[in-house]
Write a protein that binds this DNA or RNA. Structure first.
Lengths: 262, 262
DNA sequence: CGAAACATTGAACCTATTCAACGCCCGTGG
DNA sequence: CCACGGGCGTTGAATAGGTTCAATGTTTCG
């Protein structure tokens, strides 16, 4: 992966300043390489990806900007080159739900462009982001020509269905503490960063965010995190969580008896 | 649709005997016609469907039998010719969740055979059922040859993702009464039967079932249904629900102020 | 008729929500 | 530099909404 990296003024990131709106790391994107790093396209030959790369539009977003808004007509598939994005869904009742975080090498918007419908979610940039917009028409056309790509999409969707079914199950059967623990372990595996103190969840993560992921309130999340901090399972701060004892959190997620010791 | 229908001893079905285990209506299945009635295959030419029909295995199940069990290796895609089936998922914690009902002209097992993995659900026959088993290998092979079929699968999966996301949202944001109302309206549109008294949910539907669909307990469901019956919104019986005032139930589902009148 | 499966209801209990008050941190502007 | 305000986080107290358990009733079927 030979991206030419042009750094902004401040390269170093300390763990305490997690939401560095001012740090803008602009990378010269190699479209083909980026596309190939997305699992959907990884099986394709470069020649096959060429029309996609040519049709791709590069775009940048600042922290806080919305890449897409729910109910807008879907035009593009988004591939993330750098930065963190969160996908949220607003219900008719006005409650927001945080579906997932998307980071570099991942994509979103696939469902909407496949149905040629409206985006079912909003996407908000949490940091400075570079993304590629792939026109839905190009993707749809390519799928009808390259069965391999269609199979990739199917695998992607099938995986999503599975994970949603699991989440549904959890939400209906488990208590809040368990669900929060699960959300944390999921986040750890997705955007976790090993440090000496433990696993740092490497996105700005407020109590409110965790509440929206687990279907509870920010108050309850706050209480739960406080409890865990007293038990030295985690180290929580402003929009920041470090998991000090992963096995302890997993134990809570799986509803096992609390593990003895360390 | 020219199926030759060979009736069992008792053709008539009264609305009070809803779970007629003894009534076995055996139909001579025309595989091609049945397959074409499934939305996935409806766009295909009969010639294209021939290999599928030839590889299909017809099988019958009695009420209470399991067509598939969770975690078994997935071999077949199931197409339902007649009868009602319910899909359930068991969590590691031992809680059961009722995902959906499947009736004639619908299919299930698609996700599992696409990933060549294990079934993520169990399927239980609620009535006598006739189904076609389509080997996963045949489907997978066909998909790589007929892009149209792959697109159909994709549409099917995309729809499923959408509906699961909506359900997740509901489960996390709405109160039990709302969720039960939603489940009922969903059931009404799927397996509802217009009668003089109202819309009959045309499957055996216990309080336990409703509880497993909405993530609550059978006690709470019982209380809610009792309440609605007192308000003359529904007519509830043993494994039987008739919606007498659909608009009233919808109002509860949508959290509107209770409608005056009627 | 009796057993089994399904349904109802009351009472105690508990989890999580709600509301309100307050603390803390950070950036901004006087 | 300090004061102020805004956003985020914490915590207590009251409360609501569901759960749990147990007792009892009802329907169906063999």
């Amino acid at each position: 992966m030979h991206w030419i990296i042009r750094l902004g003024k401040s390269e170093q990131r300390s763990y305490t300043s997690l939401n560095p709106k001012e740090i803008i790391v602009k990378q010269q994107l190699d479209y083909l390489d980026l596309l190939k790093s997305v699992s959907l396209f990884s099986d394709l030959k470069k020649a096959e990806l060429l029309p996609v790369a040519q049709a791709a539009i590069e775009k940048c977003f600042h922290a806080g900007e919305f890449l897409i808004r729910q109910d807008e007509p879907a035009e593009y598939l988004f591939v993330v080159g750098s930065g963190n994005i969160k996908l949220t869904q607003l219900s008719s009742g006005g409650d927001q739900f945080l579906l997932c975080y998307v980071t570099s090498g991942e994509m979103f918007g696939s469902i909407a462009i496949l149905q040629n419908a409206a985006y079912p979610v909003s996407a908000e940039a949490l940091t400075y982001c570079q993304v590629l917009l792939l026109p839905g028409s190009v993707i749809r056309h390519l799928m009808s020509e390259i069965p391999q790509l269609a199979m990739g999409v199917i695998r992607h969707l099938a995986g999503r269905v599975q994970s949603l079914q699991r989440q549904l199950q959890e939400l209906s059967a488990e208590r809040v503490e368990q669900r929060v623990a699960r959300a944390l372990t999921r986040l750890a595996s997705q955007v976790g960063l090993r440090t000496e103190q433990g696993i740092l969840i490497n996105v700005a993560l407020s109590r409110q965010d965790l509440a929206e992921m687990t279907g509870t309130t920010l108050y309850t999340v706050s209480r739960i995190l406080s409890g865990w901090e007293k038990r030295a399972l985690i180290d929580a701060g402003r929009e920041r969580v470090v998991i000090k004892k992963p096995h302890g959190i997993v134990a809570i997620a799986e509803d096992l008896p609390a593990p003895r010791s360390k």
